[in-house]
């Protein structure tokens, strides 16, 4: 029981991170119907910017943890959002009207580019944070020599994810920007006719997705204390799986899918085999796409001729 509870906590924390990344996939897919293959790498860039900000703060002598974390967050979100914006501007906007495969290939190219860009600039080896700024936790339960730990980091992950989700739901449902986004999602041409600045709305969607990915990247860095240039590939695929599982295009679906993928991965490693945990994620992706392409909360897509 204690072991199960511990895995549940670990799975939820991991799943929350996947959910944050998955929102970026799902929002972009919802609005322009393309898989932003480079989103996982945007997440990785966010993590790298966070660790660089952390190191520079250390050099400047800012060591008070809450301030350092806030500055780190602001820097990571701002610069990663800019990366998201530039990504859309350079690689996707020129291809908006040209079928399905061209933007996907462009996105794959961008993903390869970003990975190698970071690898060349920062080196291929793992970058470690050193002493973690947030450590310790609460012991929830102690039974038969196995204590269930809920670390402060896990609390931060879950609380910040809940806050971000609440904020984004508010943003999408009530603000003008959110309304524009939903309008573009339904009918881009009609939205344009009614005076919605479509280009700006799409660009802002990328910026929002990238900001969440930056938060996820920073949280990932603080949680594992380590990051490398390749981390975005697997995390991106898993988050995409989460978005598909939850129903691509649906915001709560992305979160739900993220939590499920996190739980499945953690429980699979805990009870079956850690070596095949990635197979579990890929297997779920295949199964969902084959048997229920609309996901758990998605709307069925009508094919128009």
């Amino acid at each position: 029981m204690a072991y199960f509870l511990q895995q549940l906590i670990n799975g939820l924390s991991l799943g929350a991170i996947f959910g944050l990344i998955a929102i970026g996939y799902t929002m972009v897919y919802g609005i322009i119907g393309m898989i932003n293959f480079a989103h996982g790498d945007i997440f990785m860039v966010g993590g790298f910017i966070a660790i660089i900000a952390f190191m520079v703060l250390g050099l400047l002598g800012i060591t008070w943890v809450p301030l350092a974390l806030l500055v780190m967050l602001a820097v990571a979100v701002a610069f990663t959002a800019l990366y998201g914006w530039a990504l859309e501007r350079v690689a996707y906007r020129p291809l908006r009207n040209s079928g399905r495969l061209a933007p996907l290939i462009s996105a794959i190219g961008m993903s390869i580019f970003l990975q190698n860009y970071v690898q060349l600039l920062q080196g291929a080896r793992n970058k470690a944070l050193g002493t973690p700024p947030i450590s310790g936790g609460i012991t929830l339960m102690d039974s038969a020599g196995f204590s269930v730990q809920l670390s402060y980091m896990q609390i931060i992950i879950i609380v910040s994810t809940v806050l971000l989700m609440a904020g984004f739901t508010y943003l999408i449902n009530t603000t003008t920007l959110g309304r524009n986004q939903r309008a573009c999602e339904q009918d881009m041409r009609m939205a344009r006719l009614l005076g919605v600045d479509v280009d700006r709305t799409i660009a802002l969607t990328f910026v929002m997705g990238a900001s969440l990915a930056a938060v996820a990247g920073m949280v990932w860095l603080l949680y594992y204390g380590i990051i490398d240039f390749y981390v975005g590939f697997l995390a991106g695929i898993k988050a995409f799986t989460a978005a598909v599982l939850g129903g691509i295009g649906s915001l709560p679906g992305a979160m739900l899918g993220g939590l499920l993928i996190g739980l499945i991965e953690v429980f699979w490693s805990a009870y079956f085999s850690a070596e095949y945990k990635d197979v579990a994620a890929f297997g779920i992706l295949v199964l969902v796409l084959v048997f229920r392409p609309t996901g758990l909360l998605g709307k069925p897509e009508v094919e128009k001729v």
């Binding site: 462009s106 190219g109 961008m110 993903s111 390869i112 580019f113 970003l114």
Partner: peptide, 12 residues
């Protein structure tokens, strides 16, 4: 790096 950039450029 060049492969990635080229894939994007060619698609555009």
């Amino acid at each position: 790096l060049a492969f990635g950039a080229l894939m994007v450029a060619i698609m555009i």
